[in-house]
């Protein structure tokens, strides 16, 4: 199935341009930095790597990493659920570690490597975790899903790296990818549709294959 949204956009007669072309024009231009009252907008030029590609953009210093991805780079796979670090829908991997991209400013990530859901796989070539979410129906409305998947991948890596959690009985022993460990570590990613039971099944599937 193709994205109906994209299909629709292509045949808008009203809107000549496609979403892809907005990528550049949506970057706040330097020219608008000064308004009629003479106040200026602080912008800064940053360089970072997103999904393996170097990116350079001019952003308002107040722009979160989340909005830089969604509004400036058109990487809308990362979702804004709360904008306050409460829901986890905006989870991305920065230098291999998961973070809430709404709680960090874009310019703080100069020269860092950001991986978003789009960098993990495509509809044609799914990452094993994405495929497991599909086969276990680890989602419903799909809005928390990119964050859940980014978190799920990071959680299995954290367990493999021996990082303990609140439910680890012995913090000096190597943690295992048990349902209890996964549920604890995934609890920053809310799914209001309530796909939790299936998400743990999907993660267990992937963890089993990895082992």
């Amino acid at each position: 199935m193709q994205s109906p949204g994209q299909l629709e956009l292509n045949r808008r007669d009203l809107l000549v341009s496609t979403a892809a072309t907005v990528a550049v024009s949506a970057v706040p231009a330097a020219a608008q930095a000064q308004n009629s009252t003479g106040e200026t907008v602080q912008t800064t030029r940053i360089k970072l790597s997103v999904n393996g590609k170097p990116r350079e953009l001019e952003v308002d210093t107040r722009t979160t990493l989340l909005d830089a991805l969604r509004e400036h780079m058109q990487l809308t796979g990362t979702k804004k659920g709360c904008d306050h670090g409460q829901c986890g829908a905006c989870t991305v991997l920065v230098d291999g570690r998961r973070i809430n991209s709404c709680l960090t400013l874009a310019w703080m990530h100069e020269n860092e490597e950001v991986t978003t859901i789009e960098g993990l796989g495509t509809p044609e070539t799914l990452h094993p975790m994405q495929a497991a979410f599909v086969s276990h129906d680890g989602y419903q409305c799909g809005y928390c899903t990119p964050g859940q998947i980014c978190s799920a991948i990071a959680v299995l890596d954290e367990i493999k790296a021996g990082i303990p959690s609140h439910v680890s009985g012995d913090i000096t022993a190597a943690p295992e990818a048990t349902a209890l460990e996964m549920r604890e570590r995934m609890s920053g990613n809310i799914c209001r549709c309530g796909a939790y039971s299936n998400i743990v099944d999907a993660m267990t599937d992937v963890a089993g294959r990895q082992a």
Partner: peptide
Amino acid sequence: HDRIEGPLKTTGTALYAYEHNLPNQ
């Protein structure tokens, strides 16, 4: 059957309302 829109939702390519970026928005 698996959801037919599953590959879109799991790859972040399903477009939700706010993600329909328009020129000059």
